[in-house]
């Protein structure tokens, strides 16, 4: 398959698209692991949310 005289532009367009989508995917994946890690740390230290407490004590906020 030949891309004709304007091959650069076609390749560039696809490259930019792939790059932006890769950035989005990376943002989503890295953000997920970061939030999970912080959440794990907090839970390890015994911080719980109100909905997780059996007695439903007032946790503030």
């Amino acid at each position: 398959m030949t891309l004709g005289p304007h091959a650069d532009f076609i390749v560039a367009a696809y490259a930019v698209t792939v790059f932006v989508i890769a950035l989005l995917v990376a943002w989503v994946v890295l953000d997920y692991s970061a939030q999970r890690r912080v959440l794990g740390n907090l839970e390890e230290r015994g911080v719980t949310r109100r909905s997780q407490r059996p007695d439903g004590a007032k946790g503030g906020l």
Binding site: Q35, V38, L39, L42, R45, V47, T48, R49, R50, G59, G60, L61
Partner: peptide, 10 residues
């Protein structure tokens, strides 16, 4: 948001 709530409670 969960992390935020828990940090505030801590």
């Amino acid at each position: 948001r969960r992390v935020r709530t828990m940090q505030m409670m801590q």
